[in-house]
Design a protein around this nucleic acid. Structure first.
Lengths: 204, 204
DNA sequence: AGGGCTTCTTGACACAGATCAAGAGGGGCG
DNA sequence: CGCCCCTCTTGATCTGTGTCAAGAAGCCCT
């Protein structure tokens, strides 16, 4: 038996639990701070193919992915799309440097599947950060670890062959191969779809 | 006439001015905060070739480069060095993710020229951040802009040819060609020294 | 100031991976 | 339910860049 009308509340609170856990991987929040922090978030469903951010646009919302997969990409002047990240729970979605530094986003963000995000507006988030310094700490740790992640990727792109990059993905994030079309995976790995296809054949 | 013994103080205060200006590009500091922040820093001369951080070591100091050029690099298992950044005034020197996240540094840092840094210990810095939330804000903005810089580089490595990367460097940071040996520049640009040499020939 | 070592350049060749082309599935929409 | 488009694969060829090799040019150290 399903009661969708009473289900909405538990869903939000499950999402908030996720948010809390993800904030608390970096800083611990006293109860009274958490009570404030949880207020301005709302659930929002996302449809497959939906554009959450356009390249060149100012990013104005910050969100946690509750369900679904999204993809961060950019487009070259001659129209090739390059995927730079796949994002899925419990990642944050949104283009952080655009959001926090108030510059137009150099990246687009779209949904690869239906999903749900827990979102809040830029200004609400900045207000929260203003009032609770735990969140300032959370922010720098979050950025520091995002930076570390990009450095790791840079390193792999510079030093590994296409075959090795594929095998590393297979070891470290095999779920991505289920979640995203291979042509996006190829672009994420910095190779053509044909090369990815051959790397897969070589492996098995 | 030169009085080196009385010169030390003015030098430190010039360096502190630099530090203050560089912090204030992100947050403004009330006088009484600055009075505290400036205390724990000391000048330290650096010799050409000196290793400031070793790969795998825990980074324990944070510093501002006052004079000189340094280079951040990593080494592959088979011994090739890859330069990931050149650092010169008014940059910070040190491996930020290691320093702030307390993980062993994946990178080495060495001096390409004699120079001077304005340094402080990890713990002194964290104490300052503990006491002054302006510095938490400074930290996340600093990391956010470092992240934006790495994303820009990733993009260039993925989409531009060797020739184009060289020409972009020539346009955007020509000084690097004076400051660092070409083989390090080549590695920074993600190409062999031979390819850089040919790119230079093609340009002129 | 000279000798030797390192850095840079130039040439010949090799190869990883891109591009072009064509065919085989496979899944969503009328 | 079936058509069609889009994704993925496989093959053939091309090309940018790496690698190897050797000479030229600086620069540092004794």
């Amino acid at each position: 038996m399903v009661f969708p009308q009473v289900d909405a509340q538990p869903e939000r609170s499950r999402a908030l639990d996720q948010l809390r856990r993800s904030i608390e991987t970096f800083v611990s929040l006293p109860e009274e701070v958490w009570a404030e922090v949880q207020k301005p978030w709302h659930l929002r469903p996302v449809r497959r193919g939906e554009q959450l951010t356009l390249e060149g646009e100012m990013e104005s919302t910050f969100s946690l992915i509750v369900v679904g997969v999204q993809r961060l990409y950019f487009t070259t002047p001659d129209g090739d799309e390059h995927t730079v990240a796949f994002v899925y729970p419990p990642d944050y979605s949104g283009v952080p440097d655009s959001l926090f530094l108030q510059v137009p986003s150099a990246y687009g963000l779209d949904a690869l599947s239906d999903g749900v995000i827990l979102a809040t507006g830029r200004n609400r988030l900045l207000e929260l950060m203003e009032r609770h310094r735990e969140l300032d700490r959370w922010a720098w740790r979050l950025f520091a670890s995002a930076l570390a992640g990009r450095l790791k990727r840079e390193r792999e792109l510079l030093t590994l062959t296409a075959q090795e990059r594929y095998e590393r993905l297979l070891r470290e994030s095999p779920q991505i191969l289920q979640l995203a079309p291979l042509r996006h995976v190829a672009s994420y790995l910095g190779m053509s779809p044909e090369t990815l296809s051959r790397a897969r054949a070589a492996q098995l």
